[in-house]
Design a protein around this nucleic acid. Structure first.
Lengths: 203, 203
DNA sequence: TCGGATAGGATACATACTGTCTTATAAAAT
DNA sequence: ATTTTATAAGACAGTATGTATCCTATCCGA
């Protein structure tokens, strides 16, 4: 797939690299994660096996690079979504919903992402956590989120909870998941103001 | 490791099977998931490679069986914990805390569990979901949990959220995670009764 | 336009894991 | 005692790995 000699050497190498990642992702989506091998990637990418070894030392490295690229792309999406909303509450809601949709749509590719968390302890995933942590901290300062739990713990909670989106089928179900997850971030009632509402009984 | 001819053939085969699973789990914990292979398992278990193939067709099957055994064991723990508590609210809290502790302690072996979710779509995991679903449904009927979201969706949410426990370090952090997760299950305030409490500000 | 540097393809090689099969031995079941 | 069953050990072909060599094609600077 990568045209020979795109222009300069550098851009060419980059193009080949990208093509390799795309190919690997496709193969994983088609034949599963465990059956991915260097020979197959090389053949599908239309390059020699030896050449492939000049780009990546092994399958793990390919998957790691692919995962890194994915996370980076998602981070950009999330950052943009954040910009388009005002206030920590709305921002977080929009960001979480977007993340849930991503988790849902990539539930095929998530297979690899899962793996990665196990292998490399996701140094890439940390960026996501950091991004959410900062957002939640803002909200905690503004008292729209709870402050009795550290922001980074809440961020990890969100990320994990929203991965349940991979197993959901409808868009509405994802919205509900986001709502429930957000409920976990609400400041707790200050003990004494317990839940006793006879005004509107629900189901 | 499995003593030759424990007594009857059946018990012997069972003992060997268990030994294989134990060996595999140990190897995964030591050398990682991807490097696990039939030859290694056979050698470490002290049985012939051909013999191993008479118990399991491939590495995946071993991991699947191991995972199944794990889940089964966890379910027993959770069921027992539930019995020792009264009322949906306390029961769920105890169950979730136990699950979080399990997720935390098995965060090494979780590597394999993760994999499995990808491979077999965890038919074993469904048992866990079912168990939680039923418990949550009880609570929803009693109006201690929200009923605007289906119990099975809430169950999936809980399971995913609590897996964040694997990345936590302290027992206290796990308790906080459980608290936050449970907060997501609370019945929503019936719109209008929004959060405005000047009584006790939380710094 | 020529030549060094770099990218690539093809191939060979030793190693390792796979899945199946065969042979021979020892214990269990009847 | 005889048959069934479980096992170890080894052979086998097929395949993936990681490395190395050889040769060609393109780019870039002189």
């Amino acid at each position: 797939m990568p045209k020979l000699w795109n222009a300069t050497v550098e851009t060419h190498r980059q193009a080949v690299r990208e093509a390799i990642l795309d190919t690997a992702a496709t193969l994983v989506a088609e034949h599963g994660l465990s059956s991915l091998n260097m020979s197959q990637v090389a053949q599908s990418a239309g390059i020699g096996r030896a050449t492939l070894y000049k780009y990546f030392p092994d399958v793990d490295a390919i998957l790691a690079a692919w995962h890194e690229r994915q996370i980076h792309s998602h981070l950009e999406q999330l950052a943009e979504v954040r910009q388009h909303n005002d206030g920590p509450a709305r921002q977080l809601e929009a960001v979480l919903e977007t993340y849930a949709l991503i988790a849902h749509s990539h539930h095929g590719g998530a297979e690899a992402a899962q793996l990665h968390r196990g292998r490399h302890v996701g140094h890439a995933r940390q960026h996501l956590i950091d991004f959410l942590t900062e957002l939640i901290q803002e909200g905690a300062k503004a008292a729209v989120f709870r402050s009795d739990v550290a922001p980074d713990e809440l961020a990890a909670y969100c990320l994990h909870a929203l991965e349940a989106a991979a197993g959901l089928s409808s868009r509405a179900a994802i919205a509900r998941l986001v709502k429930v997850t957000l409920a976990g971030l609400q400041p707790p009632l200050p003990a004494g103001e317990s839940v006793e509402r006879t005004t509107a009984g629900s189901g």
